[in-house]
């Protein structure tokens, strides 16, 4: 009961502080909002890029060819061994006939008669039955290729390791750059909260000294400022989230229409998927920035 009344009092004082330090509050809320807005934009880019890379990764596979006259049982056994690997997401068997049909379609499109005259019913790719192996994590491609090569009956393994590595590297680079920018923005936000709370402390210097003298605990004195910082953080998170929510669908539609040629690649995450992660992260960041900023300031300025 006592704790609740102290908490209610602290909340009331915290809100009062927000109003009292109007301009500084606005500056802090503005900075946190700007920081989290940029964070949200980066999150849109990174999460959607990762999603697109992931989709692209699943189309980057390994082709496994077998020794001549190996027999269906041995091929099936190889398939089972590959499927048993954790990093493998899908294994598709492509028979020699299917390989020849696909090849004809890709290389000799429109020249079907010429091909029919040349090859008749013969299949020049008679020993080209294969497995197309897709991975859940493309960075595992090298290791998997080595494993498959070691299986009896495997003649050749063709991978696209460069494409795989390239996608992984781009993904990592975007992650690092956004992390660096976000860390800088967070530091700026904490600095500004520090200024706001410092102002609040100096405005209430007299009150703090009186509270100390009448026996207020450290927590009682600091709580309103901590709540002020947290409230600034929550408001600073709510504003950009509202704007980002409003923007997301429109950005996705705009990009989709503008770059319709790339519609096969530009596959965006659903609004709900993005915001189910972004909302808790932004709120936690806002609260965290407010809390750390206020605690840091109070440590230096308020001591019982």
């Amino acid at each position: 009961m006592k704790g609740i009344s102290v908490l209610l009092y602290s909340i009331k004082q915290g809100i009062k502080n927000l109003r009292h330090n109007g301009l500084f509050t606005l500056a802090s809320v503005g900075t946190i909002s700007a920081c989290l807005f940029l964070f949200g934009i980066f999150y849109f880019i990174v999460s959607n890029f990762q999603y697109m890379v992931k989709n692209a990764e699943t189309s980057v596979g390994i082709t496994v060819f077998f020794n001549e006259n190996i027999g269906d049982e041995a091929i099936a056994s190889i398939g089972d061994k590959i499927r048993a690997r954790g990093e493998v997401s899908e294994v598709i068997f492509v028979s020699a006939d299917e390989a020849w049909e696909k090849f004809k379609g890709e290389v000799f499109a429109g020249r079907e008669e010429e091909i029919a005259q040349t090859f008749g019913d013969d299949n020049p790719l008679v020993d080209s039955a294969s497995y197309e192996v897709y991975l859940s994590d493309v960075s595992e491609q090298g290791a998997l290729s080595e494993y498959i090569k070691s299986i009896d009956g495997v003649r050749e393994v063709k991978g696209s390791i460069d494409a795989a590595t390239g996608l992984t590297n781009v993904n990592k680079l975007i992650g690092y750059v956004s992390a660096a920018i976000i860390i800088i923005l967070l530091a700026v936000s904490i600095f500004l909260i520090n200024t706001t709370i410092s102002t609040g402390v100096s405005v209430r210097k007299e009150e703090i000294s009186i509270m100390r003298l009448v026996g207020a605990t450290d927590l009682f004195i600091k709580m309103p400022f901590i709540i002020e910082g947290i409230l600034i953080g929550i408001i600073g998170a709510a504003l950009p989230l509202a704007v980002l929510y409003f923007m997301y669908g429109r950005i996705v539609n705009f990009v989709g229409e503008r770059f319709s040629v790339l519609s096969g690649i530009l596959i965006f995450l659903e609004e709900g998927t993005v915001f189910s992660v972004l909302v808790p992260i932004c709120v936690c960041l806002g609260v965290g920035i407010g809390y750390i900023g206020s605690i840091w300031t109070l440590r230096r300025h308020v001591r019982v």
Binding site: K2, S5, E207, I210, M211, V214, G215, A216, T217, F220
Partner: peptide, 11 residues
Amino acid sequence: ALAQRVIGVSK
């Protein structure tokens, strides 16, 4: 009342 508040006296 401030002096009472800091020591958590009920309203």
